[in-house]
Amino acid sequence: MGRVTLQDVAEHAGVSMKTVSNVVRGYEHVSDAMRSRVQRSVDALGYRPNVAGRRLATGRTNMLAFAFPDLRRPYFAELAHVFSRVCAAQGYQLLLEETAGSAGGELSAVRGREAGVVDGVVIHPQEHTPTEIDRARGDTPVVFLGEDVRPEGADLVAIDNVRAAAEAVAHLVALGRRRIGFLGHEVGGLSRTSAFRLEGYRDGLAAARLPFDPSLCVPRAVGDARGAEDAFGRALDAGLSIDALLCRDDLAAVGALRAMRLRDLDAPRDVAVVGWDAIGLASSLVPSLTSVAPDTVALAEAALERLRERIEGRPGAGRSVTVGHRLLVGESAPYPDGSVD
């Protein structure tokens, strides 16, 4: 069978080509029943839109890109899944671009419009600042993720890392913990995300009138669970004495829990542990992990809404949007009464 056309889908679904076109383009004034009917035919026939033709006809491809540092990090894998679902619900196709946190990868991602591939890009930069990327993006609409200095004409969507970290510390203080460590930032210099989370950690200590002790902050040389396990294990062997631990991310928390278990330490009895990102495996650990949970659906929806507005020509200054978060309480740092979510 040759290339499947709109006419093929229309005949299969028993509707007009205009109806099929409206569904494929994500036109909102289509009933749910009709959208489902057409989508079944699209799936059955394996129809794929002709991006080049649509670009010529409308100047757009209805394709967006989500650019992020590393798909091996569970947070970004799960966030990419959320973006894919939200894009599909809004009638867009999504191109995933792993930048490896490199300068070249990030610049390549925001130049996709010049090649006629995507209409706009959501990017979580790591190597470049948003201002540097903004200068290089040409006419490509871009929305940035992550707390940073927002370029004048671009939009940025984030959670409040500082506030979330302070709230996590407050939770540990409510458990009666007073020697609270921080695990998982970078040995060779802080990333922007780590800097904000460390700032919130210090704010939380200050709010509880606890002193900041740099010796309780344990960096890792490699940003994965094994790197955290090695770093935290060495610190424990060297005499680190803490009763609670805020981790930069859930991978650091996984490493910390393993290092503790190998030394016959228990969470939360000996050290209450809080992670960050609430990745899927967090609730399956033993003990289940208490973790800061960003509202990833709200993050994706806010980013795509602002990107769509820019694609449609919205002028003006950039906007900073902060979406919500919550502390998902598990067994590694339960509520004061011992309960969990």
Score class of each variant (00 low, 15 high):
Ser36Val: 14
Ala103Arg: 11
Tyr92Arg: 09
Gly26Lys: 01
Asn50Val: 11
Glu106Phe: 12
Leu95His: 08
Gly91Asn: 02
Ser21Lys: 05
Arg73Gly: 10
Arg85Leu: 13
Gly91Pro: 00
Tyr47Met: 00
Phe66Ala: 08
Tyr47Asp: 02
Cys87Ser: 11
Val24Lys: 02
His81Tyr: 13
Arg25Gly: 00
Ser84Val: 00
Arg40Ile: 06
Thr99Val: 03
Phe68Gln: 04
Arg37Val: 06
Gly105Phe: 10
Ser84Met: 07
Gly53Met: 04
Arg40Lys: 15
Gly104Phe: 08
Arg72Tyr: 07
Phe68Met: 12
Phe66Ser: 06
Phe66Glu: 10
Thr61Ala: 05
Leu56Pro: 15
Ser108Met: 10
Ser36Asn: 05
Val24Asp: 00
Tyr92Asp: 01
Asp43Met: 08
Ser36Arg: 15
Arg55Ala: 13
Arg40Glu: 13
Pro74Lys: 06
Arg85Pro: 12
Ser31Tyr: 01
Ser108Gly: 14
Glu28Ser: 10
Val86Gly: 04
Tyr47His: 12
Thr58Ala: 11
Tyr27Thr: 13
Leu107His: 03
Leu94Thr: 09
Leu64Glu: 04
Ser84Cys: 07
Asn50Ser: 06
Ala88Leu: 11
Arg48Ser: 14
Thr58Lys: 15
His29Trp: 04
Met34His: 02
Ala77Arg: 03
Val82Arg: 03
Gly46Tyr: 13
Gly59Thr: 13
Arg55Trp: 05
Tyr27Cys: 09
Gly59Trp: 12
Arg72Val: 01
Arg73Phe: 03
Glu78Cys: 14
Val30Ala: 01
Met17Gln: 13
Ala77His: 03
